[in-house]
Amino acid sequence: MLPLPPGDVEEMELVQKGGFGVVYRGRSQTLGMTVALKVIQGSYIEDLMKELRKESNIMLKASHPYVLHLLGVYEKREGDLIKPCLVMEYMPHGSLCTFLSSQPHVPCALRFRILHQVVLGMKYLHSLQPPLFTET
């Protein structure tokens, strides 16, 4: 996994907030592309790093054309705070739900193509051995 150097990501803009983290859009100088930064939220840095490693290991195992790619890790500085981030592909249309709800008339052929790609990604994830997640 590629650790991006401090100050590598510029032009950061808030995309969405969620329970586990905040997502920003930014431009990586090292990668030479627009990326999504998932800033991990939490109160203890050890727990944050554990969650970051856990999620990054899962995403690294899930390498497939129809599964979002993890590109690296980054430390976002906010004053004296350093927040760990996952650096992922940026999807300009947002989530599939956001895209479909913003398009009132998606042609049936495109809907079928999207559904087919989702199924291929899910089939790949469910076929991984050992499984990504195991019940404990």
Results as ranks from 00 to 15, higher is better:
L120C: 15
K38I: 02
L68S: 07
V106I: 14
G7E: 00
I40A: 03
A36Q: 02
L48K: 15
L48H: 04
K76N: 07
S127C: 06
Y124C: 10
K61Q: 12
K17Q: 11
D47V: 11
L60Y: 03
M59D: 04
I114C: 13
V119E: 00
E55D: 11
L52W: 01
G7L: 00
T34F: 08
Y66G: 05
N57C: 03
Q16C: 11
Q29H: 09
V118K: 06
E11H: 11
E10S: 14
G72H: 05
V67D: 06
G19Q: 09
H93M: 09
K54R: 08
L110H: 14
H93R: 13
T30E: 04
Q103T: 12
R77A: 14
L115E: 01
L120V: 06
H105A: 15
G7F: 00
I114N: 11
Y124G: 11
K50V: 07
P131W: 03
V106Y: 07
S101F: 10
M59W: 06
M122I: 15
L68F: 04
S56T: 14
M33K: 14
A109K: 09
L128R: 03
P3V: 08
R113T: 07
M49V: 08
E75M: 15
L81D: 10
M33A: 13
V73C: 09
E89P: 04
D80K: 13
L4V: 07
P5E: 07
K83Y: 13
K76I: 01
V23R: 01
A36I: 07
F20S: 11
E78D: 06
L132E: 06
P131K: 03
M1E: 13
T34R: 10
Q29M: 06
T134K: 10
S127A: 12
V22S: 10
P104K: 13
R27C: 02
Q41P: 00
V87C: 04
F99S: 12
E10T: 15
I40M: 11
S102V: 01
Y44R: 12
